[in-house]
Nucleic acid binder design. Structure first.
Length: 616
RNA sequence: GUCCCUGUAGUUCAACGGAUAGAAUACACCCCUCCUAAGGGUGAGAUGUAGGUUCGAUUCCUACCUGGGAUACCA
């Protein structure tokens, strides 16, 4: 990148002139009249040198002019002490050429080359609804994965799904009850379509949730809770049995012994629970897979709570023997976070079952055994930031070699402004529900415009889905990670303004212009550029830097902002200038500019996990 | 109570300690005999309060106020 080259030269000059090691930063001025690049080093040097910043600026400028950069046409010093740079036409020619040559790898770099990074995200729970919170985590995680890859890392995508725990017990109870009440057999579900089964699970979970608070016609809420507690134990045993049968797993934990199953009596038969558990689990996972496909995520690893419970418990037991953990009230095993200015947390509960805490310890180790990572990221909502601090602290004790490699990225929570009730689940908006709403909005727009009438109806449906994904993903990604998002349905589904579809539209527009154009740009020499063209070129030249900093800072939103500015400048140029009707050499220049915008837009959208249709 | 995060146009969001704080939306007006109007152009509108550090503060520090989260057996 030219910016790094210039940066280093300035650094050298400062060292030679003043014998100071300064980390020189270059910035892109917001106001184009200040040039294409700016350096503020003279301002920060002024104090230590006890000299006027303008003098320093001029000295650096003189030294730079000695080097006669072909990339620059002008270097100016402006009070109080900025050095501003203007790119030359030759530099822009080179930029366009490398974009066209490198095509779909343009902008990508190798800063993380050789690094193995595993990133975990989405983490939905089988039996439960995949809601917009999961959608949000998926969007962010997928984009981060793409960004890390574009910066050269070897990335593996992981998904951790909670197939045991109280939520599973609740679901099982709800499904048993609903099957009984509605007189449906478990086998009958096989002939249903998947969406209906998932609906049914969702309703069953709501029913169970409500019953555990308010009871039912025939049962008090205490009786419901007792039944769910029984099912919780049976679900753990079922999960273990499944592991043994499908993966030849040798159990580390003897659940029947821990849970005193010999003296355990339940009105549920283990066989019945096992049947429902395995079927329901598989159907849930199949359903999630349809969503991942729609969202464009392909996971390399799936981890399940059932397995991690076994790993985690072993680790904590050993830690207890080593004095890392303590026995707390009721025999629970705890980690005393208070000793480190954190909260204390329970790692194994008083029933002897591992909590999520110990599972996360196990997960870090299991991930490492599958893929010896240099870094491991876990993407979740920020409500569990404090929780992860405790986990990481405990990890420095039980797995000191892994702890420094593990990071938690807490993203903001989706908050409801004017909360729309979900028809299906009662209190949350489902992921597929939102996707379908967005898809219908897009379809309506396509029919209204008629511009995509050359597409078959199948293709229209495909494009509409791509637009839906874009509008949802972009509305999540354009905001800083960590910042809460207020869910505004109208804004999420919007197709114009600062939205994903706007970017897609710009890409499609470029494709349409290029459709019948030959693309031999070898003779292009930029000259006599107008302001609109320059503005597009300025943006194009920034892309490599944007990808680089998005990689170091893990900030998809900087990509969003950048692509939006690029699209704005291009559309503005498009409206003010004729492209195909222009005389040569202008026409060739403008067609090349269009080709470059198309490439950068597609590459940028890919970093956001957003598809770029060629027609819409 | 303690700890963490947050506060910017009516609303939703931007802004490595830098130059005139950017957008979108909503509102008003203009532009398809022209390559995709899901577009472009024009206008008006904002840094919670009080101090401090700095040549320079939306950004860093302190206090207060606002909103959210965590605070041992859900994560």
């Amino acid at each position: 990148m030219f910016t790094t080259k210039l940066q280093n030269e300035i650094k050298n000059i400062i060292f030679n002139l003043y014998n100071i090691e300064l980390d020189v930063a270059l910035e892109f001025p917001t106001n184009a009249s200040f040039g294409d690049l700016a350096c503020t080093a003279p301002l920060s040097l002024a104090k230590s040198l006890k000299r006027a910043p303008m003098e320093i600026a001029n000295e650096i400028k003189d030294a730079l002019e000695q080097l006669a950069f072909v990339e620059l046409s002008e270097i100016t010093c402006i009070a109080p002490g900025f050095i501003n740079f203007k790119y030359s036409d030759g530099f822009y020619t080179t930029v366009l050429q490398s974009i066209v040559e490198q095509n779909n790898t343009f902008g990508y770099n190798s800063q993380f080359l050789g690094q193995k990074i595993i990133i975990e995200y989405t983490d939905p729970n089988p039996f439960k609804v995949f809601h917009i919170g999961h959608l949000m985590t998926n969007c962010i995680g997928e984009s981060l994965a793409c960004i890390l890859e574009a910066n050269g890392a070897n990335v593996k995508r992981a998904n951790y799904q909670g197939d045991v725990g109280l939520h599973v017990a609740k679901s099982l109870w709800g499904i048993f009850e609903q099957l009984r009440i509605k007189n449906i057999t478990l086998e009958a579900l096989d002939s249903w379509n998947l969406d209906d089964v998932i609906d049914f699970f969702g309703q069953s979970y709501s029913y169970a949730s409500n019953a555990s608070k308010n009871g039912t016609e025939n049962l008090s809420f205490e009786e419901v809770l007792d039944a769910q507690k029984e099912l919780n134990i049976l679900a753990y045993v079922s999960a273990q049995k499944l592991l043994m049968e499908t993966e030849g797993w040798t159990p580390l934990i003897n659940y029947p012994q821990i849970l005193n199953l010999d003296s355990f009596t339940s009105k549920y038969k283990l066989d019945d629970v096992y049947k429902l558990y395995t079927k329901g689990r598989q159907l849930s996972l199949d359903y999630f897979e349809t969503l991942y496909k729609r969202l464009g995520t392909k996971f390399d690893y799936y981890f399940f709570e059932s397995l991690l419970g076994e790993y985690g418990l072993e680790i904590v037991k050993k830690g207890l023997a080593d004095g890392i953990f303590d026995v707390g009230e009721n025999g629970a095993i705890i980690f005393k976070g208070e000793d480190y200015d954190l909260h204390s947390r329970v790692f194994v509960n008083s029933y002897g079952l591992p909590t999520y805490e110990s599972k996360d310890l196990g997960l870090a180790k299991l991930k490492y055994s599958k893929f010896a990572y240099d870094k491991s990221y876990v993407v979740t909502g920020n409500e569990i930031n404090e929780y992860f601090k405790v986990i990481n602290c405990a990890m420095t004790k039980v797995a000191p070699e892994l702890a420094p490699k593990c990071f938690h990225l807490g993203h903001g929570m989706m908050r409801f402004k004017d909360r729309k009730m979900s028809s299906r689940t009662g209190d949350v908006v489902g992921g597929d529900e939102l996707l379908n709403m967005a898809k219908n909005t897009a379809l309506a727009k396509m029919q209204e415009e008629g511009s995509s009438s050359s597409l078959s109806s199948d293709q229209q449906l495909l494009v509409a889905d791509q637009v839906a994904v874009a509008s949802i993903k972009y509305s999540v990604l354009k905001i800083n990670i960590g910042q809460n998002i207020s869910y505004d349905q109208e804004a999420t589904l919007a197709l114009s303004g600062n939205t994903g579809p706007y970017l897609q539209y710009t890409h499609a527009r470029c494709c349409s212009i290029l459709e019948n154009e030959s693309q031999d740009f070898s003779k292009v020499q930029l000259a006599d550029l107008n302001e609109a063209e320059l503005s597009v070129l300025r943006n194009l030249s920034k892309f490599e830097n944007v990808v680089y900093t998005a990689g170091t800072d893990l900030t998809p939103n900087t990509i969003c902002t950048y692509l939006y500015e690029l699209a704005q400048s291009y559309n503005s140029f498009y409206n003010a200038n004729r492209i195909l009707d222009a005389p040569n050499p202008q026409k060739l220049t403008r067609v090349m500019l269009t080709a470059a915008v198309k490439i950068v837009m597609a590459n940028g959208l890919r970093l956001l996990g957003i598809p770029a249709p060629t027609q819409m």
